[in-house]
Design a protein around this nucleic acid. Structure first.
Lengths: 151, 151
DNA sequence: GTCTCTGCAAAGCCTTTGCAACGCT
DNA sequence: AGCGTTGCAAAGGCTTTGCAGAGAC
């Protein structure tokens, strides 16, 4: 509502992060910034490179290694999910909400989200044939999107 | 049958490869060796490093770059499948037989195969909710194997 | 004050590429 | 003989690491 209040605002809005301070983790401006960037584009899958670009736009000196280290910390804490979309780099998104899966178009690279329910009884079938438990891991599928198929 | 016949034997046993000669591809000793190694451990998922190791045991001068180039060629021809098992390197296996999927234990790294049928109606569901067609792509799942779960 | 985190530079790891010589067909 | 292929070395892309100083609590 108040246009001049942005700074104060953004300082109080990350309960996920502040909660970690009890565990010996510190909330530095850099870590906060990495988190803010991820949350701001929560529906996207950002590569480390994209995160670095956005983060440096707001804090020019911030070093690449710092971003990688913070991403690792956030992933270890379960706050961020690292996704393998089949390319040769990792993608990151905040781990808020429930699990979902991804499907990547092999032609145009588009990534869509799939609700967890799409798996149906697959986890049970996998368990019965292989003994493996899927747990809360996400699945990445590859295929061809409707647009690419029609051309 | 004839123990002294190994060389001649191994020269005639790769119809998949010889067929490609009609397409301008050549069958060099190096390419043949890469293929032989893959077929010899067809049930395993070999990393480029593992392939290089095995291939060099039989032909010491064979260069790393040659292995990578041959793997690329074989993948492009559809004779070999490159699989992403979630680690930071690629794994290869001969593309014989029908499609199957993989499940990787996040604790011990064990990889199991899953018959295609385990997917059930999943491809249809994915198509109806997202418009994506899975095609003949393989799926890699992550989970915990029975052994690791019981400890 | 302590102990984590940052910036910097260098290295690590897997894989690819340019180029001249080689060898399959 | 022609053209795909090899060996070699060097580079490329992404990510990690060692270290000293800075900063969060």
């Amino acid at each position: 509502m108040n246009g001049g209040d942005q700074t104060k605002h953004s300082h109080d809005d990350a309960p996920e992060l502040t909660a970690r301070r009890a565990h010996g983790k510190r909330l530095t401006r850099q870590r906060r910034l990495v988190w803010d960037v991820l949350v701001a584009e929560a529906d996207e899958h950002l590569s480390a490179e994209a995160i670095i670009e956005r983060v440096q736009a707001r804090m020019p000196g911030l070093h690449v290694a710092t971003v990688y280290r913070n991403l690792e910390t956030l992933v270890d804490e379960g706050l961020v999910r690292r996704t393998n979309l089949g390319r040769d780099r990792a993608y990151y998104e905040p781990a808020r909400g429930h699990r979902h899966h991804h499907i990547v178009c092999q032609q145009c690279g588009t990534v869509s989200h799939l609700h967890d329910e799409v798996l149906g009884k697959l986890p049970a079938r996998i368990r019965s044939v292989s003994g493996f438990e899927l747990g809360d891991s996400e699945v990445t599928f590859f295929g061809t999107c409707a647009t690419c198929r029609s051309s």
